[in-house]
Write a protein that binds this DNA or RNA. Structure first.
Lengths: 98, 98
DNA sequence: ACCGAATATAGCGTCAACGCTATGACGTGG
DNA sequence: CCACGTCATAGCGTTGACGCTATATTCGGT
């Protein structure tokens, strides 16, 4: 029954929980951010540990983040972006009033 | 000596602390996000309390956020954006390799 | 000056992200 | 098969965002 535990499981459960639509969105965002960071890292040929060092954290933290295990905070995102020579762009964009 | 305390003070101190450049950036981001949210809210003619209700929180929470008193988390940002009929856009943009 | 609405602060309990160390799982080259 | 590098998990203490209630401050209107 897919009882492997771990972050993937955790994430999946969060996304599935009803009534947590916003949390769902946040988890989704976290996941996508994780993916793009991983991509940038690999493009540089860096190991998680190298990135971790550059961003001032440990390999496990990077792994957790890339896997979408937790919803990251802005400071962490900022540090990762910085380490990857990237900019963290965030904005609240009003939807076109129908 | 401007010893009024409060979030503005807190924020200013954070931005000023040396060695915390990432935290500085995060605080800056938080501040700007707060401003844009406030703008959207006012454009709608909403009070903090109205927005708070729509976003599932209290007036004080909205005030704290708009003032940049704390670095907000993704779920909170998501809920605020949702309440304001807006989308939260985030991406890690690699700087053009010089 | 008074009143009521809107906003800013304060103080506090709770909970999840963060950061760490250690270890497991996986793969590859010797 | 074994050593090694990389990534995934686990467990745990610390810290700060979050959410609340209550109160202070500000401001416009009468």
């Amino acid at each position: 029954m897919d009882e492997r535990g771990g972050w993937a499981e955790l994430r999946a459960r969060r996304m599935g929980e009803p009534g947590a639509r916003e949390t769902y969105q946040a988890a989704r965002l976290a996941f996508e951010l994780g993916r793009s960071v991983r991509e940038l890292r690999q493009r540089r040929g860096w190991s998680q540990e190298e990135l971790a060092r550059a961003a001032g954290m440990t390999q496990s933290a990077v792994a957790r983040f890339e896997a979408g295990g937790t919803v990251p905070t802005l400071p962490v995102l900022e540090r990762l972006a910085e380490a990857l020579d990237a900019d963290l762009d965030m904005r609240v964009i009003p939807r076109p009033a129908a």
